[in-house]
Amino acid sequence: MRLVVCLGLLILCIWGWSKWQGGKEQQALAELGRHLFYDKRLSANNNLACSDCHQQAYAFADSRRLSFNTHGKAGRRNSLALFNLASYDSFTWANPLQTDLSFQALIPLFSDDPVEMAAPEIDLLAQNLTLSQYDYAPLFDAAFGDAEISLTRITAALAAFQMTLQSYNSPYDQYLAGNKQALSNEAIAGMALFESERLGCRRCHGGINFNQTIDAQGRVQRNTFHNTGLYYSDTGYPESDLGLYEVSFAEADNGKFRAPSLRNLTLTAPYMHDGSMAYLAQVIDHYSRGGSLNLQGVQGDGKLNPNKSELIVGFALTELEKNQLIAFLASLTDYELIQTPDFSAPKK
């Protein structure tokens, strides 16, 4: 009997130890990833880090309408915010092929259409990292057991760091947890509007992260792309960016983009894939009208776009209700995310 207990304890100890070790490794990996995320040496001109287009102060989104590349040239999209990434089945604005966060990092690093960071081939990149303000040898060693720099290691570390960016401490979360003081009456009224069938926000922004859809069969879709009627020009959408259609080649996908999370919305302006709306009120007007007219000077009424989602039908809203809705959306902001030192640029 005593032997069995001893053995049991031993197994428990080993299990606990290996679990703790695994946790430590994961932590070391994320810590390496944090340094890489903030390192401009991953770009061709040593002037652009991941963190330049994904800034902590803006919930790891970009406050500029479009993000700029290592050569100072504007891209065609507004960078998405990075948090609670486990709630997505794929990443980026409109590419269901990007199901792996490590793999996805290869796009900003190496893409030539559009050019983003323009990192060199891995041999040169590894050399360049040895000149960094950060001392990578101990970081790689802690994460992998030796100091070798490889592309797989870099992207795994970047992914590990991004997965640590958790954000579940907004007033809304506190309210759900039982703190009834966390939301103002105005925000509570706004929540009722948000949840109402009349506005139908939840049709595309379902779930705890406001980024899921329930399909006709009642299944949860974590990967949803919609044409929201931003544009209806001669070519449907402006040809500079046709969204999901560019990947799928299915014409019905022209102008479809991801329904992103609504958390931290007050930090992530401007809005939409092309940063075409500067204010939340504009976004609400857009959905209230059921589409935009001549947005960004592009002639045409997006409301009439034949690809527009059937879920976007428009709704009437009083000024008071609009303010309530905005108060609710503002309560989804978690200031801890932008103040957590573990998510900030590491000291030299």
Binding site: L97, L106, F110, S111, E121, T152
Partner: peptide, 19 residues
Amino acid sequence: PQLAKAPLDISQLQWHWTV
């Protein structure tokens, strides 16, 4: 592509957005 062998190990010729 990170595990690919020559001559498929060249980042410049990998088309990451289309996998």
